[in-house]
Amino acid sequence: MSNHNELPTLAVWKFASCDGCQLSLLDCEDELLTLAGVVRISHFTEMSRATTAGPYDVSLVEGSITTPADVHRIQEVREASRRLITIGACATAGGIQGLRNFAASGAYAATVYAHPEYIASLDTSTPISAHVDVDFELHGCPIDRHQLLEVITASLSGRRPVIPGHSVCQECKARGTVCLLVSQKTACLGPVTRTGCGALCPAVGRGCFGCFGPADTANTSSLAATLRHQGTPAIELSHLFRTFNACAPAFLEESVSQGGPVPVTRGRPPTPTSGEEGR
């Protein structure tokens, strides 16, 4: 093993999220100690009370931006990171908490808290890419740990990660799962959702509900027309597109087409420009 201090450094950061994607790293039970021998885990609060200052060779960022403080913190993380990789639906699309983007300003805080004025929270939940440059986005709610290892390995060796962008639908064909959409008329997002989970839901007889967000070439309007034709009500269709990846552009547009409320704040929020280092 090389000298510990000469190893490439890895940092893990959390924003608004459930911790499930960073847990995927600790769920690499067979590889965790090996990984710890080839990288120096310099900042990973969920795992260690020891942290070392940046810059970091690779930063994994979980979670979305939902507070004024985090708008600034993500800039600092970007400046301290040579490569910044976002992991999971919160970081890549705003997450389930992105549903606030469709509600009236302050309505959510007033529903949950007696004193909304105590809470420093933005009216929007936005992906990391809305604030800083991102080198690679790994999708999923949660991410797949094998894909995570591929992304870390590729980043350390300076190549582009090999992560497929095709749909869950193709994965079902490869597994030999009978199509639920055709045979059972089940509402299924498999034709438009990115693969990565292994087409788990159709294998247990339930329609895909879109954990990995839109596939690279998602024809959502064609799927929506088919589902409408099969009898799925518009409100249900809108909700189907509006879960963990509700604010991913392809799903957002389709949910609006199906009559869902439009986002209150559309587009990239005003943020300070990030530093030029590390691109």
């Binding site: 985090d70 606030r100 929270s121």
Partner: peptide
């Protein structure tokens, strides 16, 4: 921890969605 407002975002959703949404 930034609030994520689950109790608000669940309102209006179908009762069958609660297990998958609250898992998050």
């Amino acid at each position: 921890e930034p609030p994520r407002y689950f109790e608000a975002l669940l309102v209006g959703r179908h009762f069958t969605e609660a297990p998958d949404i609250t898992a998050r």
